[in-house]
Design a protein around this nucleic acid. Structure first.
Lengths: 107, 107
DNA sequence: GGCACATGCTAGTTTTTTCTTGCAGGTGAA
DNA sequence: TTCACCTGCAAGAAAAAACTAGCATGTGCC
């Protein structure tokens, strides 16, 4: 559950979600947690590419990672979605825009 | 007022909103409509740059443009925000992801 | 005419993001 | 040992986005 974000946080969240691969990752994880190699196979993309997207999703706080040992002793990195609710309206954008830190010239 | 979007529409909306300049444009227009030259001065950015961002906002359906003649007969292009409400949750993302059209390899 | 304001467009650069390729490490099992 | 899995990382290529600079148009007013 998300409450309010700074403008920069919101911008990062939106930029992170605005990608087809990452939307599919969220969709896949919404059905249940999974580890990266299996997830890569499920989505039909390369593992390094998936790791890149997972890193961005995690940086934005939209998924979490947890190491776990499989039955046969292998280290698996499991990812799961973080529940969130973000409501976008012109007003909420305006509110967030007030806390943007992008410095350029002046304002 | 927004209802449901295709995955591609949602991705475009999010990508459009995920930019500091465009967030500020939404914020500025939320206070009232304005024309591009005045808006550029208010935001402290160049007019060509603002026009680029306005074009993207309009393409995403987040703002509308209307030509109007000023008192002294000059053609002014006024922009205004379009009311919208987009709620993001893992489920809504998953739902949108089903209609993504990005073709790559297979799925 | 010349100045100040409005718009539009385009070509080229810079920056960021995306993606591939390839190599490293580790484990258990045949 | 070799094979099939798992992870991590980094360098370089490719693609997309952001931004600048400059020129064009038009208007009314002094």
């Amino acid at each position: 559950m998300e409450t309010s974000h700074t403008g920069d946080e919101l911008a990062r969240i939106l930029a992170t979600l605005a990608n087809p691969h990452r939307m599919r990752v969220i969709a896949a994880l919404a059905h249940g947690r999974n580890y990266v190699s299996a997830l890569a196979r499920e989505l039909g993309i390369s593992r390094p590419l998936l790791q890149l997207h997972l890193a961005k999703l995690e940086a934005a706080g939209l998924v979490t990672a947890a190491f776990e040992l499989s039955a046969d002793g292998k280290a698996m990195k499991y990812y799961d979605t973080v529940p969130f609710t973000v409501t976008l309206t012109p007003q909420s954008i305006a509110q967030a825009a007030r806390t943007l830190t992008t410095v350029e010239g002046d304002n």
